[in-house]
Design a protein around this nucleic acid. Structure first.
Lengths: 210, 210, 210, 210
DNA sequence: CATGAATGAGTCTTCATTCAT
DNA sequence: GATGAATGAAGACTCATTCAT
């Protein structure tokens, strides 16, 4: 491998390592992942990894710190700025398939679940920093809509979980089972149905899109 | 430790080991679990484990083979024999909290997810033998109700996933996050809401219980 | 297994164990032999072995102490009492095939060789008590014959080794290689030739047997 | 330890390991030898051995594969090209003491004998590839000489064994018993006598060396 | 006496980490 | 900066030995 002299080149290499590490940690779990696997997945040698991360655990933490977090704010804003629950749900229905197919989200979720026993603090802080904020965004949206008489719902915090569950479920299903073609699920159709069901369940009146 | 002379005593010890192993595998993942941990969790010494299981992997497979499987038929039957979708859903709403709080289901799900990368065949066969059958049971129930004009729904197979998702979600949440009190969720309430939402979404007409 | 109440029954069991142990030690070496193998080869259970021998090493030593030793005196006497070198050699030629095919000698030799590194004292004392005496017997025979002008030979002690070598060679070959039929050697013919060669080499004048 | 960067340095280390392993296997037997012993004998650490050999068994097989084999052809040629049986035997008489004192042959023989029970295939293939060829070389020599009326002998294949036996005997004696000074044998004298005896036994007419 | 379940010391093997090149 | 050889701590597994039954 060439040497990375500039800071940019170093950042690039760091990113390559993080992304290789995510892949390998997800595939094998933290304990079973070998530094060598990760190094090779990033086309580097074992020793080089230690130039960028001080230990396997450090690398693991960096993986969780560096992915997906930017999205949180984005989604919080989407929830806050949505003109109506209906449109917010439509947005979710359209956005989630992309989230599942193209982003690291499913793998991050799987990793969090897998390592919750070994890294409880990391996982709890992830829950606080990411999951609670996302659920909080949806909760807020539903609470405002409920207050506005737009929807009919019990505890918005619980309802937010019902909104999130099929998303998490699909994300997990995709990483866990879809290595095999017969387990494949049509996520677009599933999410479309999820949104339809939610609207019916919440009593969202469908506005006619002119 | 006392010695297990009779076959019954040996079976008991086997069960104790399986249950200790499930605990440790769930907590640490297969790779990070030490046979010694498992042995001590069952109040045995390391060597004794090998009198009952020939290897760590054998023990792991036995753990998956020995739990939850009996329940599958039970639930399949429930779905098949349900007099109506509404009652079936009510049944689910009442049964699931028990399932999540009292049985190994949540831990098994977590384990399956965690080890899907390391034991793909085991995990896929579990999907076929357990998950597909459970989802198939719900799918059948919904398909029959749809044919009878009882409910309004698109593809029953997808809808079955929407039925299952909050159950899986809650199960996972309970093992992954509920080690910490502030992450606790009221599963009874959540499931009650889930059933309510489902009935509304599917257009189930609530019969008045005389 | 029945209990051995009488002393005779106990001795029998001891012998069975010694003979099973010889077999297993020869087949696998001391280190690789498992007490369980030996016990089962004697149709006993593992624990029972410890009623007769205090440890694996004790059993090993007993094996070497209890076999073949009686023969030594017998052979010493044969050598001492032989009326002539020719007849002594004839006796060897007739006796050795039996020794190799029917007695434990070949296995004992193999065992001594195998364990010479792990049990140097045992092996050296075996050499002194058995091998040196046997070689000494032959050496004495040759020395007397030389003194009597019966044969022509250099150092009788060296010549004794030339007498012994093909015997040891055949014994070893039989345990080491003759598990496979294509390695089989006609020991009677080989020993006959050995005796013929020895007589010619030593210049033994063949008396005509009336 | 210094690091072996070049292929040459690695080959050197491999050789050092093979030779350390031979020593330790011979001393203790395969089963009783610890990888750590071997590593230390080669001034390396335990882990390093596994950079060169994938397992203890792999190392063992490599030990047998890498020694003595070159000599076989050499000796085959000597036998084939010998101008006369007498000279061939003289050659053996002079060469064997070197073989026994300076080469790995005695240790290899001991190892083969010791491990014949645990590695029957390896040992049989060694017999075919090495011993049978060596014995075959001598057999051929004797058969040619017999056909030429040079010597008087029965079955040359058996006679070859009588040629080999004192060599094997001495080789074994040297590894097995000569750790102790009082067991030492004068191999040169023994071999000289062996050759003398063989010539007499075969009726080789001693040519006068001008 | 006989058994075989239980134990834990001992050994092979892996792999995170270091460091000479 | 990059490499991969070397290291040794850690963990799976075996088996001699003990001892409750």
């Amino acid at each position: 491998m060439q040497r990375a002299r500039t800071d940019d080149a170093k950042d690039e290499r760091r990113q390559a390592l993080l992304s290789a590490a995510l892949e390998v940690f997800v595939e094998k779990s933290f304990a079973a992942a070998r530094m060598d696997d990760i190094a090779r997945a990033a086309s580097l040698s074992k020793g080089t990894v230690y130039l960028y991360f001080s230990s396997k655990e450090d690398l693991f933490e960096a993986v969780l710190r560096n992915v997906a977090l930017p999205k949180v704010e984005h989604i919080e804003n989407l929830m806050r700025d949505a003109p109506s629950v209906g449109e917010a749900l439509d947005g979710i229905g359209l956005f989630v398939p992309h989230l599942i197919r193209e982003t690291a989200l499913p793998r991050i979720i799987k990793l969090l679940i897998s390592e919750s026993g070994m890294f409880p603090e990391i996982v709890q802080s992830y829950r606080e920093d990411v999951l609670d904020r996302l659920l909080g965004g949806v909760t807020g949206l539903l609470a405002r809509a409920k207050a506005a008489g737009e929807i009919e719902v019990g505890d918005p915090a619980l309802a937010a979980r019902l909104v999130a569950a099929p998303i998490a479920f699909s994300a997990l299903w995709s990483v866990v089972f879809e290595t095999v073609p017969e387990a494949r699920v049509d996520i677009d159709a599933l999410m479309a149905m999820h949104v339809t069901h939610l609207k019916r369940a919440l009593g969202v009146i469908e506005e006619v899109s002119a």
